[in-house]
Amino acid sequence: MSLLEISGLESFYGASQALFGVNLRVAEGEVVALMGRNGMGKTTTIGSVIGLVRPRNGAIRLSGKDVAGMQPHRIARLGVGLVPEGRRCFPNLTVHENLVAAARPGVWTLARINELFPRLEERRDQYANTLSGGEQQMLAVSRALMTNPKLLILDEATEGLAPVIRQDIWAAIRRLKAEGQSILVVDKTLSELLPVADRCFVLEKGRTVFSGRPNELTADLQDRYLGV
């Protein structure tokens, strides 16, 4: 059984349709890349999974349970940890408060987070809005991990970060993968994303147009669906 299985998903913003049939599957322990140009529905797909966008048609199954249309906090409690686009930490809570507010019991504890991102331990009592972009991203990832999710979703987690910080984030993702964490990643840097991914899905105009192994995503296909 897949951890996450999306089939025929259609979502709307008011009257305008954003998704026209998205299919996607994340198996236990897999890292799955969700790709596509801007405006093709990646964030909407993620929003539908976590319940922030209400899907109109299709199915979203989490460990076999249909979660389409459930309230976001219930879906999160079933084991989805979201690292939203643009980081979105709680700006006026300290690093420590951001982490403990989200915490649910499991293998991820404060001690392990501090080991993963030692930088955060140094910033423990600083407000999130005083952190650098990279540190905020580390905090956003950590906050999601503190909920001990079965599935971690990273939406553009390395966007707009300095190269050296991006390396830190990718290193953390590789480490999470090595530990067997299931991850759904949205990212535009193919050179870093493809080596980590076990499987890729490409969206175009709200539809899944490609799914397969990273090595099946030929230069031709990349140019057609992802090139600018």
């Binding site: 976590i50 976001p72 906090h73 999160a76 979201l82 006026n92 809570l93 951001n98 507010a101």
Partner: peptide, 24 residues
């Protein structure tokens, strides 16, 4: 407390709070 952190987090953004699994 943790409750207080969640309460203040909800003041700042309730969707984000829901996304970490807490019902505002």
């Amino acid at each position: 407390s943790r409750f207080g952190a969640a309460l203040q987090a909800g003041r700042q953004n309730e969707q984000r709070l829901a996304a970490v699994g807490i019902a505002p």
